[in-house]
């Protein structure tokens, strides 16, 4: 029976419906990660380089944010976008935009946290050296970005890995509408509830493949960071 499901799953990988779900997943999570990078990386560099009172507290908040449970984020975004919520008039609930928003909330702390620790891990001497050679404030930030660029790639991959695999938030704010807001994880959940394991397994295989690829890239990068 298990083998049957796998055989069926592999067959399903050729179907247009499966691919439209995969593409939607990549579109939603990819957009969320891209926006998260635009917000998280500059802010992370800023916090990573700056020394100000309360910095420790800010870092602690970010680290907590890295572990936010997706369902909690889903619930909060749901309440905000609900008709009775503060942004209800925008009618964003059960749209791809709502899903991007929820995943953004999940991805930003992750990108931010990894960036801050990556920038913080640059030896102080390197930045002093850049400054000593005449780097201005922005140029110093760019030098830090350059030094930590592998960490930043890591941050983006980790962010993507977290949100493309989460189900709680997208289910709640996206509604898993067939052909509209259905993504890989919500489909898996739906299919399993129906007792239809094959499609769930097919999408599971894709998710696993993505996770494996991301992991391979990450360990290569980490290897590179260590041997540097």
């Amino acid at each position: 029976m298990f083998l049957d499901s796998i055989r069926q799953a592999l067959g399903l990988l050729a179907s247009a419906e499966v691919w439209s779900i995969i593409l939607r997943s990549v579109e939603v999570s990819g957009t969320a990660v891209a926006v998260a990078a635009v917000i998280g990386i500059p802010l992370g560099v800023l916090i990573g380089l700056a020394r100000f009172p309360g910095r420790g507290a800010v870092v602690a908040v970010i680290n907590t944010g890295m572990a936010l449970p997706p369902v909690v984020v889903g619930l909060i975004v749901f309440m905000i976008l609900s008709r009775s919520g503060p942004l209800g008039s925008l009618q964003l609930l059960y749209t791809k935009q709502a899903m991007v928003l929820a995943q953004l909330v999940l991805a930003v702390p992750l990108v931010l946290g990894i960036t801050v620790s990556g920038i913080g891990g640059i030896p102080r001497e390197v930045l002093m050296q850049a400054k000593s050679l005449g780097a201005g404030r922005l140029q110093l930030a760019l030098a830090a970005l350059n030094e930590a660029k592998l960490t930043l790639v890591l941050a983006i991959i980790a962010g993507m890995g977290r949100i493309i695999a989460e189900v709680g938030a997208v289910m709640m704010v996206g509604g898993n509408f067939k052909g509209e807001t259905q993504v890989m994880t919500t489909t898996i959940l739906e299919e399993v509830r129906k007792g239809e394991y094959a499609l769930g397994l097919a999408l599971g295989i894709i998710l696993l493949t993505i996770a494996l690829a991301a992991n391979a890239v990450m360990s290569r990068i980490q290897g590179g960071v260590m041997t540097r």
Partner: peptide, 14 residues
């Protein structure tokens, strides 16, 4: 016509 694939509670809320 929208299909949620979710439970009764979630579907009613939607």
């Amino acid at each position: 016509y929208r299909s949620t694939g979710q439970g009764m509670g979630e579907t009613l809320r939607i």
